[in-house]
Nucleic acid binder design. Structure first.
Lengths: 214, 214
DNA sequence: GTTTTTCGATACGAATGCGTTTCGAAACGC
DNA sequence: GCGTTTCGAAACGCATTCGTATCGAAAAAC
């Protein structure tokens, strides 16, 4: 019988692949994605050098560059602030603040660049990013807006798509144009409050949002 | 004397450089910038081929790729909608609409990508873009906001930087996330009106901005 | 110990692009 | 016509990167 364990996991016999090398490759890939602009500038050889790994070890696991990128970006867990805080305003502020910090982080910033610019060149990659990173966040904001419209903290006739674009677009553009130095909770509050004053009911339910002079 | 016209334009004697070739090079460069994502993917040889020109003709005018890019992007005149329309709202709508259309145009979109992503790699280039393209538009919006605050069409205590980020960021993000298909004046109006309801005075000076149901 | 597989390192051929050079033809002033 | 300069085309040396192949060493199962 010679101990044939065919029914088991069928371990391949031989030196097992190093999980440590695999992690080093993924980490190096994410590092270099963050440092480069555009996927074309990213080279397998640079990844191998950064990871302290031979190219062989990379090509034994992924057959080409795009396959590696798909797996690397998929490991970028989306930590979704998604606090169920007390008020809609608090949750919006928390979200904007996290988003602003993400916009300053090199690797996460580049993920958005890829999603926006390389849709035609790398459709599989972009689709994966949309599913893993973008869609959950979009869903979270949409739910937050719906909650606000239900509780009356937000006006009922707002356009959710535009409101979402305003939240994210304002945060991103401000960070990019004014510099990432001054990201703070206070800035997130100003952004949200200026938006809230628009989407809040015409009455003064959210009077605190737009602080009167006195 | 042998007719030495040293004081004149001192024409160089010999076959003059072809202005037609120069324009073809610039046009080809802008075309390819729009089609590629990232400056690294742009090749001089592709530009020469697209322009129907020898590489010699390019290198005789510009000593390297970056010099060519600087000049090419500098020719992108910024047509600044900048209408002195009747109301601040009208001007804002006009600006947002133009900005949305620009965000769909491949070459102009890439200009913004360069300005945002390649600041460290090509500082001269980015600085030039800022001066030629970004700064005039920023100044125009800032003036428009000041005008609104002066005339009372806008609240006096708004944060101009955040308001500008909201205008541009919302338009850009909406176009990118929802697809460029549905760019229209009506969309620009919805974006501006949702912002206006926020930055307009608490009273109802701009009651027309947020149309009541009836 | 033997076998099998992976390890990192290195070299390879093919492709691409840079910036330069050379070439014959063409366009200008004289 | 003559000298000068630019033209497009082609080739050059050099560098980089791809994806593959080869090497001796190391790590597991047997």
């Amino acid at each position: 019988m010679t101990t044939t364990d065919e029914t088991q996991t069928a371990r391949p016999a031989g030196r097992p692949r190093s999980a440590r090398a695999e992690k080093a490759i993924i980490d190096a890939t994410l590092d270099l994605i963050g440092e480069s602009s555009g996927l074309g500038e990213l080279s397998i050889e640079a990844i191998a050098a950064r990871a302290g790994v031979g190219k062989t070890t990379i090509y034994r696991r992924w057959s080409n560059k795009e396959d590696l990128l798909v797996d690397a970006l998929a490991t970028l867990k989306s930590p979704l602030p998604s606090l169920r805080g007390g008020s809609v305003r608090e949750d919006l502020v928390a979200y904007v603040e996290v988003f602003q910090r993400d916009a300053c982080d090199a690797s996460k910033r580049c993920v958005m660049n890829i999603a926006m610019n390389e849709a035609e060149r790398h459709p599989r990659l972009v689709e994966r990013i949309r599913q893993v990173t973008i869609e959950p966040r979009r869903a979270a904001i949409a739910a937050l807006l719906r909650r606000g419209m239900a509780t009356g903290e937000l006006r009922a006739d707002i356009d959710p798509l535009i409101a979402m674009a305003t939240l994210i677009g304002t945060a991103m553009w401000y960070v990019r144009s004014e510099g990432a130095a001054e990201v703070s909770r206070e800035l997130a509050e100003r952004v949200v409050d200026q938006l809230l004053a628009g989407i809040a009911p015409a009455g003064a339910v959210n009077a605190g949002a737009v602080k009167p002079e006195r």
